[in-house]
């Protein structure tokens, strides 16, 4: 059976032979074994338009498998010695060094308590090792990373929903942002933190994100309008 882009694949399916002449990128869900390309997850076999990127788009996934250089949202669960333990929803808790913050030195420790939320980048995500987080980039700047402000609300959603809402041209955040003042932090691990000016607005944004799972782009506009109308009554 020949598999082409757009087909459904199951783990173990042979997709084809590795072409020695072309430079190709194999994304998540694909593995190369003895010059043969196999699918290792179930989903749709896809290709990135205008690029030699092939990957398997999974339908529904809730367990996060850490991947290096992804940004995740975690809860600090333990503070021991010079590292924090952070729950990022993976099989093992991630470690976060107290030196991996902007402006942190051995004397000047970051002010982080157990239970705080951090938006951090994975630098070590290996199959055999504990994942490791940092809150700075390679220049020592924090950028968008770091502990999140007080307040707000956290919830978990499926990984494919996160991927859906983070697509460049997905309208949800911008449409809501026109009328509601809010800030949001979406981790690739399926944890989302929302903070709006008022509590009803926070709940509305959370519900809008969860409702977006089964909505198309066109339905988003209509849904946002409804939400804003409801908020006007609050």
């Amino acid at each position: 059976m020949h598999i082409t882009v757009g087909d459904v694949v199951l783990p173990g399916d042979l997709i084809g032979e590795q072409d020695e002449l072309k430079k190709v990128v194999y994304g998540p869900g694909l593995r190369v074994h003895q010059n043969q390309i196999y699918a290792v997850t179930s989903g749709i076999f896809k290709k990135k338009p205008d690029a030699n990127y092939y990957y398997v788009d999974t339908f529904h996934q809730k367990r996060y498998v850490p991947v290096r250089s992804e940004d995740v949202l975690g809860v600090v669960t333990n503070k021991s010695g010079d590292i924090f333990k952070v729950d990022i929803g993976s099989s093992e808790q991630a470690s976060l060094s107290y030196l991996a913050f902007e402006g942190a030195t051995k004397k000047n420790r970051p002010d982080i308590q157990v239970g705080d939320l951090v938006f951090a980048k994975l630098v070590v995500a290996s199959r055999d090792m504990e994942p490791e987080l940092v809150c700075v980039d390679s220049y020592g700047k924090k950028g968008k990373l770091g502990p999140l402000p007080e307040g707000g609300f956290v919830f978990s959603c499926s990984l494919n929903l996160v991927r859906k809402i983070l697509k460049k041209d997905y309208p949800l955040f911008n449409v809501l942002g026109k009328d509601i003042s809010y800030e949001i932090s979406v981790g690739m691990n399926g944890k989302v933190w929302v903070k709006a000016a008022t509590i009803p607005q926070t709940i509305a944004v959370c519900n809008a994100i969860l409702a977006a799972e089964h909505k198309t782009k066109d339905e988003i506009d209509e849904m946002s309008k409804q939400i804003l109308k409801m908020l006007a009554y609050c």
Binding site: Q18, D19, E20, L21, K22, K23, V24, V25, Y26, G27, P28, L30, R31, V32, K46, K48, Y53, Y55, V67, R68, S69, E70, A125, R163, M188
Partner: peptide, 11 residues
């Protein structure tokens, strides 16, 4: 000739 990219972000 190929790169394994484990993240969905660039894809």
């Amino acid at each position: 000739k190929y790169i394994i990219e484990p993240s969905y972000i660039p894809c």
